[in-house]
């Protein structure tokens, strides 16, 4: 429990800061909707003139922007890189700090197994991501309520929360794996940025390509808000696939930690 609360407190400020950023940004999009809803028809005509590949890259259905959460989903798909960076960073920071800060000889000589260290750190990451999700979705709900657009959005927001949390956990697990595969990474931000940008680029190919299989290669495509909005639920294949990916990433990380030499290098 001490490891969990220690890591939770250590990363709480960063998580709150990011959740605030996300909430403010999302609120901004929703308020933006109020100002442009009169001109949405003109905007649709504008989008219709875009070349087909470009429209494909923008997402499944541009028509969803006529609703506030639709506009939000549409714009969010372009900034989804940022939460991904944050989740990878969180994984790297929670699991990589004993190696990058050289505290492994302090922490791993305490009476707690490496398995316990690992599990508690994963739980602290989960707790932070859940907190972030709850805050983010709560702010969205609140803004929609004040806009008078909350009538049929409750279930959508719950699916949004699931989609957001699951995607963040996949990226968190990815950060965790990187922390144990390359013990001693110091520049968390540049690594997170690079990895997230790589998967974001694959995502661009996935949405513009002819095959659905590419979607399995990038966590950005597992649980998109616009898909949730159009289908009303999470894609079950991608849902189970993302759970599998999370399990595999954590599994390899666990094996690596419990079998590696962990002294200060």
């Amino acid at each position: 429990m001490n490891i969990l609360s220690f890591e939770f407190k250590r990363h709480l400020k960063m998580t709150i800061f990011f959740a605030l950023f996300l909430a403010i940004f999302s609120s901004g999009i929703l308020f933006f909707y109020i100002y442009i809803k009169e001109d949405l028809d003109m905007m649709m005509e504008f989008f219709d003139r875009f070349p087909a590949p470009m429209k494909a890259m923008m997402g499944s259905e541009v028509s969803i922007v006529t609703k506030p959460l639709g506009l939000f989903s549409f714009i969010y798909s372009f900034i989804s890189l940022i939460p991904a960076i944050q989740a990878i960073y969180l994984g790297l920071s929670i699991h990589g700090s004993p190696f990058s800060e050289k505290t492994s000889e302090f922490i791993f000589t305490k009476p707690a197994s490496r398995a316990r260290h690992f599990v508690m750190k994963v739980f602290s990451g989960f707790a932070l991501l859940i907190l972030e999700t709850v805050f983010f979705i709560a702010v969205l709900a609140l803004v929609l309520f004040f806009m008078g657009e909350s009538d049929d959005s409750a279930s959508t927001l719950l699916w949004f929360a699931d989609a957001f949390l699951l995607t963040q956990v996949v990226f968190f697990a990815l950060g965790t794996l990187l922390a144990y595969l390359f013990m001693g990474i110091k520049s968390y931000l540049s690594v997170s940025l690079g990895v997230a940008a790589f998967f974001f680029a694959i995502s661009a190919f996935a949405v513009s390509g002819n095959t659905d299989k590419l979607k399995f290669l990038t966590p950005f495509q597992y649980h998109r808000f616009d898909s949730v909005l159009l289908n009303g639920y999470l894609d079950s294949d991608l849902f189970f696939f993302s759970l599998l990916i999370i399990t595999v990433l954590f599994g390899i990380s666990y094996f690596r930690l419990t079998s590696a030499d962990v002294y200060n290098r």
Partner: peptide
């Protein structure tokens, strides 16, 4: 580890 105290040669803690 419950009954062992260790002082490493190079001391690094959370700054």
């Amino acid at each position: 580890a419950e009954k062992v105290g260790y002082l490493p040669g190079e001391v690094y803690y959370y700054d």
